[in-house]
Structure formats: C-alpha cells, structure tokens
C-alpha cells in the first residue's frame, strides 16, 4: 500500500466485490466515493449522483472522512421501493466500524444492507387470471 492511500489492494478488491454482488442482487447501480467534499457534503453527494449514467436507478455512497459524514443518495426509481428511513438505518450499520477507523468494514456493511433493501419485490400474483 503506497503512502496516502485510504485502502489496501485487498480492501479495494473487497469493496469491488461487494459492489458487484450488490448490483447482482438488487439490479441497481452502486457507486462509492470516498473523499473530501466541496463545502456541504450532501450537495457534493447529490452532484456526484447526478453525474453517473443512470441516476434514477443508482445508489451513491459518499464518505467524507474529513467531516466524518456518510451520504447515501438514491435515485428516483430506487426511491420508489426503498424508504429513506430504511436507508438511514442502513447507514447506521457502518457507525461502529467507522468509529473504529475501519472504513472498509463499514462500507461493506452499508453496501450489503442497501442491496437487500433495493431488491426488487417479487409479486406472486401477477400471473393470476
């Protein structure tokens, strides 16, 4: 790990794998950005979310280690099935790990929880005549 890197190669691999799994499970696009915000962290997260290919079907996690904030932005299509209160609860899952300085474990927890929340709801009665 070179100086100044937030994550080791192994940690990056773990996060990448978690994103792949989350996308497979939920059918949503996941993005994670770890870095300082320009001013307000929420506004930065919204701007980052607006810059991706399919914002409506995307979930962006922005971690600002300087301000110690975690921002989760869900697109409009994601929001139809994922309640903001549940997203906030998922965000809390990282708290213990982040406080211990383990960003990777916290991110993995958040990604996994959001993937479960964003799973498409299967209806068993759509084929009923």
């Amino acid at each position: 790990m070179s100086g100044g890197d937030a994550f080791s190669h192994f940690e990056r691999h773990e996060i990448d794998k978690a994103i792949r799994d989350a996308e497979r499970v939920s059918g949503r696009n996941f993005y994670v950005h770890v870095g300082q915000s320009a001013g307000d962290s929420r506004r930065t997260a919204l701007a980052l979310h607006g810059s991706v290919a399919e914002p409506a079907n995307s979930i962006l996690i922005h971690v600002d280690p300087t301000e110690r904030t975690l921002e989760i932005v869900t697109g409009s299509r994601v929001r139809e099935t994922v309640d903001d209160r549940h997203v906030a609860l998922a965000g809390l899952s990282m708290q213990t790990a982040f406080e211990a300085g383990d960003l990777t474990r916290g991110l993995l927890a958040v990604i996994q929880q959001l993937a479960q929340l964003a799973r498409p709801v299967r209806s068993l009665h759509t084929e009923t005549p």
Binding site: H33, A38, A47, L48, I72, G75
Partner: peptide, 23 residues
C-alpha cells in the same frame, strides 16, 4: 484538493432520496 462539485440540479434533488449519517 476537495471534490469540485457545483450545486446540484434542483429537479434531481427533488427526485432523489437517501440519508445523511455522521459518525
């Protein structure tokens, strides 16, 4: 330097959801 992100579009802000958590 910090991310240089301008203010987001108001319309997209209305449609998006999510949460903010501090630790």
């Amino acid at each position: 330097e910090p991310v240089t992100a301008g203010p987001p579009d108001d319309s997209s802000r209305d449609q998006t959801g999510g949460a903010s958590v501090r630790w």
